[in-house]
Nucleic acid binder design. Structure first.
Lengths: 211, 211
DNA sequence: ACGACGCGTTGAGCGAGGTCAACGCATCGG
DNA sequence: CCGATGCGTTGACCTCGCTCAACGCGTCGT
């Protein structure tokens, strides 16, 4: 794990910031001066159309990076979903770091490719799946994310609102809500509370992510 | 331009292949043994669902790379759209090349980030734009691609079929066809032939890519 | 020369998901 | 204690894009 190898180096050049739900980290088009890492909380990345339609391109959890793209300006906006702590690093400093530690660049390349693969999977979702399949796919991927972060049980927290889920899946709030209800009525999921999901049979839910 | 800097090195380790329209370069899930560069023709990248629904995640033109992702298996399938020539390179050789020439890794990182930005733009299209906006966005991006490759005039060739366009934009063949007709009737585009597009006013067409 | 086939276009009807509206239920400030 | 506000759910209705079908046209192979 490279991230931990260079903690001391990072501590010299990193600053920590706290943000509140709904607060902006940066906006699409801003000059990309800083790269960030989420140390606590959840963040949404999104793009807007002029009339306000929003597409969320990703959700970030603790450990995830944002603003790493080697570009002049940010390609998307970023906002906190929950209370969040971020580490911030000047991109210039990041360049220096990459000179000193070439394996870090390799790691960044891997991260970019993982994001690309996720983006392509999401295109398949948005372009070709039904509402039910999209919601099922989303829940499975959130489950995997939660499972990586510890407990192997099939119950987890959804930090984002129905509106965020809708804008991530290319649906409306109402359709997301109705689909949750339908999945619950079919016994594919349980909803102990609005933001808590329990999955009795992962295999069965997974089967309804396509075909 | 790094690509041209190392042409001699590449010639030692690269093999050239020709493929015909519809022919497969590799399939999603195959072991990723080779990286490729398109030297002639056009290629489509896509993912399939079990029931055959297809999402095209990108079109490649001469100069574009495929199979670069640092992953064990390919994340998508690749097929020729037209007759095409490809250079093929063992990923092991690519690794060696990266040792010898660190700037190449930087370039690959840039390429991955450009693809990521394009993927995010496409998510916005698929999740939040209407059929007309999607087709207009697609035509504008194809125009830009063509314009980069030479002539500044607003007429260009579409190498892919209506079916490919539909699967790229998350629509049906019929909707793509109807939308082309509608754009023509509104004077936003001209269709000298089925696979040839002319854009009288780029600004006007661009305006109809959103809001 | 001619039928078969692939591709694109057009029309008619339908349905998944969007829109609009009402309502329940927390949380919050006065 | 109570109205206001925000979020989620549900219902009724509508529309955009899908489905199914017919047809035109160019390119094959025979």
């Amino acid at each position: 794990m490279i991230e931990t190898d260079c903690v001391e180096v990072l501590d010299r050049i990193v600053t920590h910031t706290q943000i509140r739900p709904g607060q902006t980290v940066f906006e699409e088009g801003d000059e990309a001066k800083y790269a960030y890492n989420v140390s606590r909380g959840h963040v949404r990345l999104f793009k807007l159309l002029q009339d306000g339609r929003r597409q969320i391109t990703g959700f970030l959890a603790p450990g995830d990076f944002l603003g790493l793209a080697a570009r002049q300006t940010y390609a998307y906006s970023a906002e906190a979903i929950t209370d969040a702590d971020l580490c911030r690093l000047k991109v210039g400093e990041l360049e220096n770091l990459l000179e000193e530690m070439p394996p870090v660049r390799e790691r960044l390349y891997e991260i970019a490719n993982d994001e690309l693969a996720a983006a392509q999977e999401q295109m398949l979702c948005l372009g070709r799946k039904t509402a039910k399949e999209r919601v099922a796919s989303f829940l499975i991927s959130q489950l995997r994310h939660a499972a990586d972060c510890g407990d192997g049980i099939a119950e987890f927290e959804l930090p984002m609102s129905r509106s965020d889920i809708a804008d991530y899946l290319g649906l409306t709030i109402e359709t997301v809500s109705r689909t949750f209800t339908a999945l619950r009525e079919e016994g594919l999921i349980e909803l102990p509370s609005t933001h808590r999901i329990s999955i009795p049979s992962i295999a069965t839910l997974e089967a309804s992510t396509e075909a």
